[in-house]
Amino acid sequence: MTAAPTPALPPVEVFESGDAALRVVASSADREANWATVHALAEWLDAAGADGVHGAVPTYDSLLVEFDPGVTSARQVRAFVLLGLRQLEFTGAPARAPREFNVPVVYGGEYGPDLERVAEQQQLSVEEIITLHTAKSYVIRCLGAPAGSPMMDGPDFPLPVPRLKDPRLSVPAGAVSVAGRQAVIAPAVAPGGWCVIGQTPLTVLDAAAEPLVPYVPGDRLRFHQIQLEEFAAFAGRKLEAAR
């Protein structure tokens, strides 16, 4: 009997991050492998559980593991993390079927105050920006601030999008924005420095549900354009997986 070869994990480093957290970083040239590793490790740590370990926050190539220094210590949590990595070396990252979400967006105007600015900066037309933004299926890389925002690798614009010089004090829930080479939807009202190019009428955050947002990292999301008149028809509906 021959065992299926397990893909090698990228090299992983663990850094002190105060007396109540560790930062775990996967540092290979393969960004996809780094991402898969920190998310698989976060799942393992959550499933295994350890006294005093509050939880893990995975992003792109890193993972913040938070713990209660009254119950456990940085040294013990480091050993727990290394144990998780050993396990993953044997089992590989667990396979999970990603779900897909379709997000209607009204672009430009009052709902997308930065659309024209982004078009100008990219030296493209507004229509070309919308076409590029709706062209691809995005992988949700991680949940970010505020309130479980779906952080995605951005549309295939020619240039990175600069952040606003003066961040807005309040960006509405449902705002669809881009910055650098990233894209996001705001689940809740919050200040923001990203360029808002549109808004979805769907409700993303449900504070009465657990989890609060319907997607998890690894799920996929696709935007499609709707017209201003259609906004009201979608308003109040929840964001739900299409499959």
């Binding site: 991050s17 105060g18 957290a21 930062r23 926050v57 995975p58 992003t59 792109y60 913040l64 938070e66």
Partner: peptide, 12 residues
């Protein structure tokens, strides 16, 4: 260099 978003601890 560009810094990718990552989890930051309370107290950072």
């Amino acid at each position: 260099a560009e810094v990718l978003s990552r989890g930051v601890p309370v107290g950072a």
